[in-house]
Write a protein that binds this DNA or RNA. Structure first.
Length: 257
DNA sequence: ATGGCCAGCATCGCTGGA
């Protein structure tokens, strides 16, 4: 089973790339973030023509998440229970073998002194509470998405410049560790990885060409799935594409079926 | 040299992203 996550920064713009990517890579499930589409505008038919089912929740202009899958999922959830939020940042569904997949677009936080930063930490706390319950019901759980957190200095090209800044601050890194503390594993770190592997590069400053990036997109697995995880890679090549998203896909493979 | 790009919405400049 192949699971992937990709912040596409507008599915309207990136749809041809997403179609090409799923046809080439054949993931069982692809988690998308920043679709920026209202539900009535979601390209269900185009995606179905490529052989994929869609589950999605979106809003105008901002946010929006989706699950593309070869088999339709069920028990779909599109909000964090008990957390009042107009922003569409989570979708979860259950697939074959009772694998529970949650796709998240964690708030950016803007800067550590901003109101948006408090919202980010509150959102992460609500996610943690929800996952604690989900893991009781679904021992085979995968949490994929744009976390907007670089967990360690090795996930940042210039850690000194980023120290204490949003995406790298201690409160955010602590929140990430609390997710791991629930019984989740960062699948990327289960394997030897190329030095300086990142998932996001600023559009400005020729950041991609200079590999000035951060690893902020992650695939976390419950222990039961981590035990059967055979690979986790970042598909950096697509970032070289004309009109790319600023994020690259992360792909994790599981030895089920 | 603390900006530079990109997408969306609505115009002909702003917000938000990370």
């Amino acid at each position: 089973m192949k699971l992937a996550t990709w912040n596409v920064n507008s599915l309207k713009v990136r749809l041809p790339q997403v179609i090409d990517w799923v046809v080439s890579n054949e993931p069982d499930i692809l988690c998308l973030q920043e679709t920026k589409l209202q539900d009535e505008s979601f390209p269900v038919d185009e995606i179905l023509a490529a052989g994929y089912c869609s589950a999605y929740v979106g809003q105008k202009t901002y946010n929006g998440v989706a699950l593309l899958s070869k088999q339709a999922g069920d028990r779909i959830v599109t909000a964090l229970p008990g957390f009042e939020d107009v922003q569409k940042r989570i979708i979860a569904a259950t697939y074959e073998e009772d694998v529970r997949v949650a796709c998240v677009y964690v708030p950016n936080g803007e800067k550590v002194t901003s109101e948006k930063f408090h919202y980010k930490l509150a959102w992460l706390a609500a996610l943690e509470d929800w996952l604690r319950e989900e893991l009781l019901n679904y021992p085979k759980l995968a949490l994929l998405g744009d976390f907007n957190i670089a967990p360690e200095d090795q996930d940042v090209r210039d850690p000194d410049a980023w120290r204490g800044q949003v995406l790298c601050s201690q409160p955010e890194r602590d929140a990430f560790q609390r997710l791991l503390g629930l019984g989740l594993v960062d699948s990327f770190r289960l394997f030897d990885q190329p030095e300086k592997t990142y998932t996001w590069w600023d559009y400005r400053m020729m950041a991609f060409r200079r590999n000035r990036g951060l690893r902020i997109d992650h695939v976390l697995l419950s222990h039961e799935l981590a035990h059967i995880c055979s690979a986790c890679t970042v598909d950096k090549a697509i970032r070289k594409h004309e009109r790319p998203s600023d994020h690259a896909p992360v792909v994790t493979e599981l030895s089920v079926q």
